[in-house]
Amino acid sequence: MSEVGDLLAARIAAEGPIGVDEYMAAANSHYYATRDPLGVSGDFITAPEIHQMFGEMLGAVLADCWVRAGRPVDAVYAELGPGRGTLANDALSVLRRAGFTGEVHLVETSPALKRAQAKLLPEANFHDEIDSLPKAPLLLVANEFFDALPVKQWVGDEERRVIHDGTAFAFTIYGLIRETSPARDEAAQTLAKRLAAYGGVAIVIDYGHSKGEQGDTLQAVRDHRFSNPLDEPGEQDITSHVDFAALSEAARCGGATVSRIASQGAWLETLGIGARAMALAAKNPQDTERIAAARRRLCDEAEMGRLFKVMAMRAPVWPEIAGLEA
C-alpha cells in the first residue's frame, strides 16, 4: 500500500470512516506535492500541452476583454493550478502583443510544478491560495483546477464514506450517488468576491456537466489510463466532474456576473481556432497534420469538445468574454 494509504488506514482504524472529500483531499495533496504529473511520461495531458492554439485563444479573449475594459494599467494575469506554465506562457504572448504589461500571479501548491512554472515564467509571483492574489483587476484562467478539489458523495441523505477492511479501502454505502463540493463552492465564491471588489474576469474550463446532473463521477487516472480511485491513494490523480450549475450559483452569491456555459469545442470554434490552425499550417506546412489533429482533439465532440465546458465570471462593470455572451 502507498504511504498515504498507510496513513489513511491508520486514521480510519483510530477514528472511523472518513468522508470521500477527506480521502480525496489527502490523496491529491500528496500526489501533487511529489511529482509533475503532466505529459507523456506522467499520468495525463491537459489542453495547453496539446497545442499552443489553446493558450493563444485564451490570451486573445482576455486581451479583447482588457482592451474593452479600458486597458486598466493595474490589471494582472492570474492562473489557478497552472500546470507547467504552458497556458500562461502562450496566453501572455498574445496579451503582451496587445499592450498588456501587468504582473503574473500563479496559485500553485505543488513544489514540483512551481519549479517548472518558474523556469518558464521567471517573472511569476506565487501564491498558495486565491485570497492572497493582488487587490487588482484579474485576467484569470482556471483550466482543470476545480475538478481536483474534493467532493462529498451522498446516497439519499446519508453521506458516503470510506473505510478500510484491513486489506483494501471501500465505500460504506452504494446506490444512486449525488455529489456536492463545498470546496469548489468556496473557491468560486472567493474568486467572485475579489472580482466584484477589484474588477476583472475569470475563465473556468473543466470537464463536467451544466444542468445539475447527478451520479458517481469520481475517477482516477494513472499512466494515461483510468483506475480505481480507492487504489494506491497519493499515487494517482483523483478528480470528479465539475457541476457548473453549482459553480455558477456560488459565483453569483459572491457578487460576480456569470456567463452562459458553453462546450469547449463550440467556444474555440466560435473564437476562430480554425483560422488560427490554417495560419499556423501555412507557416509550418510540415506540421499541418499535427495541427489538424490538435484541433480535432480540442474541439471534436468525441474528444474534448463536448465533455469540457467553459464559463466566465466577471465584475459587473467589466465587459463579457467573447463567445460566452448571454
Rank of each mutant, 00 (worst) to 15 (best):
L113D: 14
K114F: 08
R115M: 03
Q117T: 07
Q117H: 03
Q117K: 09
Q117C: 09
Q117E: 11
A118R: 12
L120M: 09
L121H: 08
P122W: 03
P122N: 06
E123F: 02
N125L: 00
N125W: 00
N125C: 02
N125S: 06
F126V: 00
F126Q: 05
H127F: 05
E129V: 10
I130Q: 09
D131Q: 13
D131V: 06
D131A: 13
S132G: 02
P134Y: 10
A136Q: 15
P137Q: 11
P137N: 14
L138T: 03
L139G: 08
L139M: 04
L140Q: 04
V141F: 14
A142P: 05
N143S: 12
E144Y: 10
E144G: 05
E144Q: 11
F145M: 09
A148D: 12
P150M: 04
V151Q: 03
V151A: 02
K152L: 14
Q153C: 09
V155Y: 06
D157A: 11
E159V: 04
R161A: 10
V162C: 07
D165T: 03
D165S: 02
G166R: 00
G166M: 01
T167N: 11
T167S: 05
T167Y: 05
F169V: 12
A170S: 15
F171L: 07
T172R: 03
T172G: 10
I173P: 02
Y174G: 12
Y174K: 13
G175E: 13
G175W: 10
L176S: 11
T180I: 04
S181T: 12
A183H: 15
A183V: 12
R184Y: 13
R184A: 01
R184K: 11
R184P: 09
D185I: 05
D185Y: 03
E186K: 15
Q189P: 07
T190P: 02
L191T: 15
L191D: 12
A192H: 07
K193E: 15
L195T: 10
Y198L: 01
G200E: 08
A202P: 04
V204D: 04
V204L: 12
I205R: 06
I205D: 06
I205T: 03
I205K: 10
D206S: 13
Y207P: 14
Y207C: 09
G208Q: 01
G208C: 01
G208T: 01
G208P: 03
G208I: 06
G208L: 03
S210V: 00
S210I: 00
S210Q: 00
S210H: 02
K211M: 04
K211S: 01
K211E: 07
G212H: 08
E213H: 08
D216E: 12
Q219D: 07
